[in-house]
């Protein structure tokens, strides 16, 4: 049974932008948890509270109420960050340092000895394909290279938890795939829990197992990617021979929604029994079924639907409550 390494419960954060201004609610009681080896995506529009949640986990800012725990310790305890790697969005690695020096300084601050720093630095820079730049100052790096170095710093001390804010920002497509592979390997082989905070939904879809979508400081939806993107009542229905209009009419009479799309149909049904009844009708008319599959939305569809939802207070949860 894998252990929960990130726990956030009823987390609230309110602040004033300046003295005398009204309170802004950044987080309004969010809950989620991440187990070791899990790749978890935190999504949400700008100002939804994603970065605030991560900053609370790292004690960069404090919650107004609720609790956040890292590696079993309360966020704020320096030891909770012992095995945590963090890549902030728009990070500024001191530009006067070379990659070797930056890794040395941040490695020492993470408690590593010089031998480990040297070994891990070379290993990670090779993996991230910037080893030849090891003695070049960061100010000469491109954005993508800086991002790779930031990831190397986050991974240097073999963290148990990785908190990544837009990790592939500015990275080319090949680099993105490489970073995805590294994250998957870390999760699978070392049991590293990865919390990915990104606007790139396709990236999250390709990388993460589970996601939570934040909206107005609340968890608007949470669950596995498969659960969130499955449209429970819509199916792709592909007969061997296109069905005639009388059968389509019979489907509609049963209450099903029917839409013809490029030789196949999209059926909207009440439930699985209803779906089976339609298949029976096809067979009774002598037709054969070539394919029947549930229609999936993209994560982007789900995200846009959630963000545009009329009631900002409504919470959709696939697994019941957010985990």
């Amino acid at each position: 049974m894998s252990q929960t390494v990130i726990e956030v419960s009823n987390l609230k954060k309110k602040y004033r932008s300046s003295v005398g201004r009204s309170l802004i609610t950044a987080l309004d009681g969010i809950d989620f948890s991440v187990r070791e080896g899990e790749l978890f995506g935190l999504l949400g529009p700008n100002g939804a509270g994603k970065t605030t949640a991560v900053k609370i986990l790292l004690d960069l800012t404090r919650p107004t109420a609720g609790e956040a725990r890292l590696n079993g310790l309360p966020a704020g305890h320096p030891e909770s960050r012992r095995r945590v790697g963090y890549l902030p969005e728009g990070h500024k690695i001191p530009s006067y340092l070379t990659a070797r020096q930056a890794l040395g300084i941040f490695g020492k601050m993470s408690g590593l000895d010089n031998v480990t720093i040297k070994r891990r630095s070379l290993e990670l820079l090779e993996k991230l394909r910037i080893a030849q730049w090891i003695d070049v100052r960061v100010k000469k790096y491109s954005k993508g290279m800086t991002q790779r170095l930031g990831l190397a710093i986050a991974l240097l001390h073999s963290p148990h938890v990785l908190l990544l804010d837009e990790p592939t920002d500015g990275v080319d497509p090949v680099g993105r795939r490489e970073i995805r592979d590294i994250l998957r390997t870390e999760a699978a082989t070392n049991g590293t829990a990865v919390l990915l905070n990104s606007h790139l939904l396709s990236e999250i879809e390709l990388t993460c197992d589970h996601v939570a979508v934040l909206r107005n400081g609340k968890v608007a939806a949470a669950g596995s990617i498969e659960e969130l993107t499955r449209r429970a009542t819509q199916y792709k229905f592909v007969p061997v021979v296109p069905v005639d209009d009388s059968l389509v009419a019979a489907f509609r009479e049963s209450g099903a929604g029917v839409e013809r799309v490029n030789g196949h149909m999209l059926l909207t049904v009440d439930d699985v029994t209803h779906l089976n009844a339609l298949v029976d009708k096809l067979r009774a008319s002598g037709g054969l079924l070539a394919e029947l599959s549930p229609v999936r939305s993209t994560l982007e569809d789900v995200f846009v639907d959630l963000v545009r939802a009329v009631d900002p207070g409504a919470q959709q949860s696939v697994e019941g409550d957010a985990r």
């Binding site: 960069l60 945590v84 790697g85 902030p88 728009g90 500024k92 993470s110």
Partner: peptide, 15 residues
């Protein structure tokens, strides 16, 4: 304390 730099320092296991 610059934004983007302080996060790198404070995310270490150091008080």
């Amino acid at each position: 304390q610059e934004k983007g730099t302080i996060d790198l320092y404070l995310s270490r296991p150091v008080s």
